[in-house]
Amino acid sequence: MSFGFFNYWIFIILLMIGLYTVMSRSNLVKKMIGLSLFQISVFLFYISMGKIDGGTAPIVVETGADGMAPVYSNPLPHVLILTAIVVGIATTALGLSLVVRIRETFGTIDEDEILEMEDKD
């Protein structure tokens, strides 16, 4: 296990924790938390890929901090992930509002209880 890929290991671990939470919890709010974690791990992946060791923000400067030619991090993945964050928030908001509606109509947010009630419908 190379330490150089630390960020990517964390990305995969978070991804798996998120996916496991989505699959294993029957509480719908906990499912949404798992889903958020799942999405956020992807953000970490994109952010890590654009970062270069010692790289600075992509603003044109004469020389870097150590007097050498400047090294810039790649801004594009960071910009992309701004869009993905917006999508993630929209998903979370929509998911939670559905949970609110489910609570109003079924009186519970436990998936197993809801499934039981649905079978009777």
Partner: peptide
């Protein structure tokens, strides 16, 4: 039919997982 709510929620969970997989692939 109130079951539309749970159907939409289920679709949201599965659909988001699918879209995130696509996003990882593109990355």
């Amino acid at each position: 039919d109130r079951r539309a709510l749970t159907a939409a929620f289920q679709y949201l969970i599965i659909g988001t997982v699918g879209a995130s997989f696509y996003l990882i692939g593109v990355g």
